[in-house]
Computed example of a mutant assay.
Amino acid sequence: MEILLIAAIAKNNAIGKDNKLLWHLPDDFKYFKAQTTGHYIIMGRKTFETFPKPLPNRTHIIITNQKDYVVPENCYIVNSVADALHLCEEHQQQKVYVIGGGQIYEQMMNVATGLEITHVDVTPDADAFFPQIDPEKWQPVSVVTHAIDEKHLYAFNITVYKKK
């Protein structure tokens, strides 16, 4: 099973503050939607709660310690990263995406088979961070660049990494 961490990260590895994203990048959102649609997505409870409703055409796996946490249809609750991965295996998923937050990325970094990272050219104040990408373990295999334009306040590169 492919386990892919997908995130947009700043130069200082920032991914969020006060449970909010740090930027609005429509073309990055389009990439995220194109990659994750039709797949299982794994996230922490706080990440799930940032959505007004579940993302369409994706099966959500929410990791939480809260008992009796209620979720809509097409969502699963588990208590650990191991349980999330086990559920994906039981459902015979070939590819799953981990979409946040910082603690979940940290726990999944060693089991991930690939990273799909939008590197945003900014260094914001933040309280949630993506783990350091170790160049000894991860090799970039493709990069797509995006300049600042009327819809994007920041330049960014979407880089796909494979484990060495």
Rank of each mutant, 00 (worst) to 15 (best):
63 I>D: 03
76 Y>D: 04
101 G>E: 03
2 E>C: 13
141 V>P: 00
38 G>D: 04
160 V>R: 14
142 S>D: 07
143 V>Q: 13
18 D>Y: 14
104 I>K: 11
124 P>D: 07
110 N>M: 13
120 V>K: 01
3 I>M: 00
102 G>Y: 03
125 D>M: 08
84 A>H: 07
70 V>L: 15
74 N>P: 10
10 A>V: 06
101 G>I: 10
64 T>L: 11
7 A>N: 01
94 Q>H: 14
82 A>Y: 02
88 C>N: 03
25 L>V: 02
10 A>S: 05
133 I>V: 15
61 I>V: 10
54 P>M: 03
31 Y>Q: 03
110 N>T: 13
162 K>H: 14
119 H>T: 09
4 L>P: 00
103 Q>K: 15
1 M>I: 10
19 N>Q: 04
153 L>Q: 09
92 Q>D: 14
36 T>N: 07
125 D>K: 15
4 L>V: 14
152 H>L: 02
17 K>T: 09
43 M>V: 05
45 R>N: 04
102 G>R: 04
60 H>W: 05
25 L>W: 00
48 F>V: 03
103 Q>H: 11
91 H>F: 10
129 F>N: 06
118 T>W: 04
123 T>M: 15
75 C>G: 07
57 N>Y: 15
146 H>S: 00
51 F>L: 15
147 A>L: 13
123 T>P: 08
